[in-house]
Amino acid sequence: MLSRLAESSFWLGRYLERTEGISRLLLEFHQLLIQDQRSHIARGCALLTHGLGLEMKAQNSQTLVEIVFGEDSNPSTIRGALQGVRSNARSIRDTLPSDFFESINRLNAAAESFDPKSPGSSLKNILDRLAVSNGIYEWLAPSDESSHFFKLGRSLERMDLVSRLLSLKIEKEWRDQGPATTLRAVGGLSTFLKARVPITAERVRHFLINDPSFPRSLFESGRMAEISLREIAQVNRTSADTILKPIGLLGSQIHFLGNDVEEEERIIARTPLAVEETSEAIRTAFFRPVGSIVWSN
């Protein structure tokens, strides 16, 4: 397939997942912060912006909402990630099911009517639309190379987001609400509770790192990324091993983790790097980047 299409499918998957991840995170942080000790709010705001890689500083929950909802030009914010969804979807519009394209427009409309004064309902709206878009993609998009790139992007973004979430240590910072908030921020509370064990900070970290039954755990997202990448390599008659090395190594570290808390910390810190390396390797292998050519006399 065309490299450009492959690349847009990949980034469509990543940005969709990112929009969802940041939305959930903001929703939960907002809940946490408006009930918090006054002296603690600035630190709470700083944690989220730092974790998302944003330079701006928020003073209270409302400015935090404005910063993280953000602007089109910053892909680390909700608006920016949505902009990424739209522009990538547009460039491969002909290959996407029309229902999906329509759902993206509706998603965008939901974001347009975002009201920073009541972020709760607005974010819930966006999350609802995201669920519809993802659902339509699952039902209608043909299971071809393009969808493998889409899913690959989604899985890598998941790993990145979950490791960012874990590095915030919400569940240690807010002893009482933190563990449940961390789980809600990735939609994992119900799955966690199915195991019928009490919520503790340690269990929550462990769960998000290596629970095989939760699709967003680092372990499971890594495994899904590997499956998609092997499919792509098979179609292109090439080997995925070199590209897979960073997340493959991570996967085996998680597999043999046991109860080593320090190793958990190392894994969390290493994940965004492994994702970046893999992403770069995919780019070189399949998207055939060329330097931008500028003609001049």
Binding site: E7, Y15, L47, P75
Partner: peptide
């Protein structure tokens, strides 16, 4: 502030470097 324990502060997440999120080719 109830939960800022020494243990948390020892490896304060705010002390680590800001890791920017990756960008796609469209930007």
């Amino acid at each position: 502030a109830p939960a800022i324990e020494v243990a948390v502060l020892e490896s304060d997440p705010l002390k680590s470097d800001v890791v920017p999120q990756m960008q796609g080719p469209d930007v």
